[in-house]
């Protein structure tokens, strides 16, 4: 390697180190003083991620969710997009896509108000839509809505009843 090129590499890595240093300082300083800054070390445990504002755990076990379904003692709410809902959902589930909850909520609110327990679900271990939806429903006055984590995948794996298309066909 020529002397000139070696110099450029050294210069590049010096600059890169300075980039990192300046970014770390700027990022931490802004995060410290801005509104909406986050803690440097977050709590990502399941208890913290799936709790409501009072710190109560909102998760329902798959076994319990299945029992409630078999005894028809539950309303499932699908928090995924309408497109995903139409492609397939837990039989009898109501569609309430989290990203359009303001548009859909009034429409489905009456159907949720049956006194039966509410279980929200989406897809994937890390999907947070169902959790956000459950918190929203609790704020709206529904009693103890719970989350079936990774609900859609678990339901499919267990071979439990599903439906496709709009739920007006099921009613």
């Amino acid at each position: 390697m020529s002397e000139h090129k070696k110099k450029i590499w050294i210069q590049a890595f010096r600059q890169a180190a300075l980039f990192i240093l300046v970014s770390v300082i700027a990022a931490l300083a802004v995060n410290q003083f801005r509104p909406g800054g986050i803690s440097i070390i977050g709590d990502w445990s399941a208890e913290a991620r799936f709790s409501d504002a009072d710190g109560d755990l909102m998760i329902v076990s798959f076994k319990e969710a299945r029992e409630l379904f078999i005894n028809q003692q539950v309303i499932f709410i699908d928090a995924r997009s309408e497109k995903q809902y139409l492609e397939g959902h837990i039989q009898g589930a109501v569609s309430l896509p989290w990203q359009r909850v303001d548009d859909y909520f009034i429409e489905v609110a009456d159907r949720l108000d049956t006194g039966k327990p509410i279980i929200t679900y989406c897809d994937g271990e890390t999907c947070d839509l169902s959790h956000e939806l459950a918190i929203f429903l609790k704020e709206m006055g529904f009693q103890n809505p719970r989350v079936l984590v990774n609900g859609w995948s678990l339901w499919l794996q267990a071979g439990l009843p599903i439906s496709t298309g709009s739920d007006t066909d099921e009613r």
């Binding site: 770390v24 990022a27 986050i38 440097i40 070390i41 990502w44």
Partner: peptide
């Protein structure tokens, strides 16, 4: 888990 927030705070500034 303990590196998640730190990464989320610093990475965008490095990109910028």
């Amino acid at each position: 888990d303990h590196l998640v927030n730190l990464t989320a705070i610093i990475l965008p500034w490095l990109e910028l």
